[in-house]
Design a protein around this nucleic acid. Structure first.
Lengths: 134, 134
DNA sequence: TTCCTTGCAAATCGTTTGCATAATG
DNA sequence: CATTATGCAAACGATTTGCAAGGAA
């Protein structure tokens, strides 16, 4: 169970660490192949799971049935554009109070929460406006 | 595109309508087979989708990669027990304000949200306590 | 040398779909 | 009769896994 160093795991984390677009395993695979052309999809999946278990990355369930990955493990929420599918971060500590609100309405012990917001992203709003103008 | 009546769709909705346990398609299939033994899984999936599109039921993405179904379409949130996997409802209108809070922190247009709470359900809490007492 | 990690391919699992037939309006 | 719905089985897509070979401690 002791973790050993691996070039492919490093490459996967390096690919992910500056991303803000919440890529899927497939996207990570495509990207990392530019560094390590013969890396296999299975290795990508295995390492994404390891990175998650060691707390270096987080998964995001967007609702499209595909798991997305997020290198930002700090407390934040996600916005999903129902028009283009883009996933963006929303940072706002103010809503962490919903955890205690929820506790008041629920008999069990609440330890965490995730919130997903849906709507139209800024980019799509602009495009909508442009299309209406024509 | 006009919807026709079907015995199997009725049976599926009847099975679902009083449930509070958010069953999966597989569970619905098993249950409905007691009424209609030769119903097919495909029919179950197709009708669950129809029921969702007509707004009679809702889907719940719990995080286990399987879609769960909920006959309660009123505004409410969900709690997932990290110990037993049980999915329960949490009703609390007070948090709908998070939508406007989120809007303040985000440049796009937010139209909806879903929130999932995680923790230990009452039943598991009791069992934990009982186990500690021994 | 020990044991973790890899690449490859096959297997799994939830879900979808094509098609000929049955049921509905 | 026109059309929607069904059962069956095959197809799908994302993810997992078994295994023999490679790499790290």
């Amino acid at each position: 169970m002791a973790l050993k160093h691996s070039r492919q795991r490093d490459a996967i984390y390096d690919f992910l660490k500056d991303r803000k677009d919440h890529p899927t395993a497939e996207t990570v695979y495509m990207g990392v192949r530019e560094q390590i052309p013969n890396i296999s999809l299975g290795t990508v999946y295995r390492n994404l799971m390891v990175l998650k278990e060691t707390g270096k990355i987080r998964t995001v369930e967007v609702g499209d049935g595909i798991v997305h990955f997020d290198p930002d493990t700090s407390e934040h929420n996600h916005f999903i554009c129902t028009s283009c599918g883009r996933v963006e971060d929303i940072k706002m500590q103010s809503i962490s109070s919903i955890k205690s609100i929820a506790s008041e309405h629920f008999p069990g012990k609440i330890t965490g929460y995730t919130a997903y917001f849906y709507g139209i992203c800024e980019k799509c709003l602009v495009e909508e406006k442009a299309a209406a103008g024509e």
